[in-house]
Design a protein around this nucleic acid. Structure first.
Lengths: 347, 347
DNA sequence: CTGTTAGCGCATTCAG
DNA sequence: CTGAATGCGCTAACAG
């Protein structure tokens, strides 16, 4: 093997053996005081000797060795599409905080909602031997998770899975997009915003289509024309929203308002509208979805549907740790979280 | 030990031994084909037998065992104050992408810029035995990192360290806040925004004070009064900026413009200004710092200083992997990254 | 209460 | 080209 490591890399860390030698006890005793087994008792003096030896040497347990032995890594993984969408930092933060409280570390993966990357991450998760995983998959199916589940790794999914989970102990946490978007669209129509356009991302992600479906349904109820005002941006980003809005602006009829599939797209749409010399909401009203933290800070403040991402992350993590701690065992759960229409100024 | 694990947790994963048995070879051979050592050659048929056995069993190497043996975890850690500040997701994303390219996973820690948490994370880093770490520390000193460095774990720091690093191989990547903020303040003054206020977070974080110091210096050059228009919010967040702006609004003289120490605070300030029935920039102009992704999408678009967080993250990670791959060895580097004044509409 | 012993799964000598 | 043997650092029986 080619030597690519610096020399300092080889300086050996102290082990329990070293500690034991200094403290004049056996290595077992060191392990015992470290793990505080209540079954055995260590004499206070011995314990103290070990403790001082430990920080004299600056000993820190080796995670790999411990994991190999205990079959636990004290790491959970989170799989999200893109940390750059402001929805997810809050979600991650929620997870992170409960992981922290449980003394767990968090490995984060960005998949860009792309199946190849999602699979790569899953594989990575398997070799890293994380103890559990919270995923926001866009293309993965329940089967993709079964190797993990068979290995006893608890899985919590945020959102609908492409294929419904079997009776595997796979937990789902979700917000009813279809219902929420329906309420929002109804609100907009009630308020007289007709014709109402919609801005969505490309439709290759099944799970994103709930909002679009709701839009179509409500429009149908109102006997409004379908799809002629549905514009697609490539990505569910500000750029995508901007591009889609430009299409709408260039076409006819012009919408009186647009419903963007998420807040980032709504922000892009607002920029396009302003650039066209029009005002929000006077000329074109805009509504989004997610209620990302900046939504209420915008000018005008954005009307949207709140999903409370931080709370979602926290609850997802709680479900995960219930399984990790054995507090809950049993079939897969399905936890539906509330949403809330936030009427502000933009629509 | 109390049984807290579900039964499925105990279902054993296949090992190299299992693969070997099925393929009719020794475990060594399995390891050999897996690691593709060029020193030894495996006959094509044998290799094939092993490969088929591997995916017949769904064998996945055990990360803990491998780490224990190789002294590498293929994990790097990143330590940031708060993923919820939009500056950091981009930074993380930059890191994540190069980690990905190097087949590394990323553990992310949020410290809230709080020393206790920062230390906890550092300890966690040590036991997790990550191969390297990128940190944005607020209170940690160079000494806090020395245990890591002595163990051969490369460290890259974003920003100035409270105490200057010794000759340890600790790399620094930074943006010259002092200079950048100076330019921005000068620009604002040149433009006639007098009196010019400033909004900053509490000053318990040494590294945050570069921007404030620059403000004071330029003000002094202009012979403007010091500090009477410097308002502090508790946190470097939108809420902090909002609170600080309210103080300024309630006091006198009223500033003609405010420089917020970061964009989130600037956004909070803009909200406070609008709530007071004033306009940006006609009544009070606002400038920020960071150029977070939403800055240009605001209404009015925010004048600020760009730090290009994604690129920062990427470069930081590149420095780290240069050490990890042995491409670079030697003393600590200091990499200064460019910034750019972004004059938009808000000031 | 403390020490001896035996692996966890893998990479790596060293012999054949 | 392949296999047997060894040990990474740690936990957990099991004895004393």
């Amino acid at each position: 093997m080619i030597r690519t490591m610096t020399d300092s890399r080889n300086r050996k860390r102290p082990t329990q053996d070293d500690v034991a030698r200094i403290a004049g006890v056996s290595q077992t005793v060191v392990s015992l005081v470290l793990n505080d087994r209540s079954l055995v008792t260590i004499s206070p003096e011995t314990r103290q000797r070990v403790l001082t030896a430990i920080d004299e040497l600056g000993y820190v347990p080796d995670g790999s060795a411990r994991s190999l032995r205990t079959r636990k890594t004290l790491i959970v993984a989170s799989l999200i599409p893109d940390i750059t969408n402001p929805f997810y930092p809050a979600f991650e933060r929620g997870i992170q905080d409960v992981a922290d409280a449980n003394d767990y570390d968090l490995i984060a993966y960005n998949t860009d909602g792309n199946r190849a990357k999602e699979l790569r991450c899953l594989r990575s998760v398997q070799r890293a031997r994380v103890d559990g995983i919270i995923a926001t998959p866009f293309q993965l199916t329940a089967e993709d998770f079964s190797p993990l589940i068979e290995n006893g790794v608890p899985v919590v999914i945020f959102g609908e899975l492409v294929s419904e989970p079997a009776s595997t102990p796979l937990d789902l946490i979700l917000v009813d997009d279809y219902d929420a978007a329906g309420k929002l669209v109804t609100y907009l129509l009630d308020r007289g915003y007709v014709p109402l356009g919609m801005i969505a991302a490309s439709d290759d992600h099944v799970r994103r289509e709930g909002r679009t479906a709701a839009y179509r349904r409500v429009l149908a109820e109102w006997a409004a024309p379908q799809d002629e005002l549905l514009a697609r941006g490539d990505d569910p980003t500000e750029a995508g929203g901007y591009a889609a809005m430009r299409k709408l602006l260039a076409g006819s009829p012009q919408p009186r308002a647009v419903f963007a599939a998420n807040d980032m797209m709504a922000m892009g749409a607002m920029v396009a509208i302003r650039e066209a010399g029009l005002r929000v909401p006077e000329d074109i009203a805009v509504a989004g979805f997610d209620d990302i933290p900046v939504a209420r800070l915008l000018n005008p403040p954005l009307t949207t549907v709140a999903q409370f991402p931080e709370r979602l992350g926290r609850r997802a993590a709680e479900m995960l740790f219930e399984r990790l701690n054995g507090t809950f065992t049993g079939a897969g759960r399905r936890l539906e979280m509330p949403h809330e229409l936030k009427v502000r100024v933009s629509a």
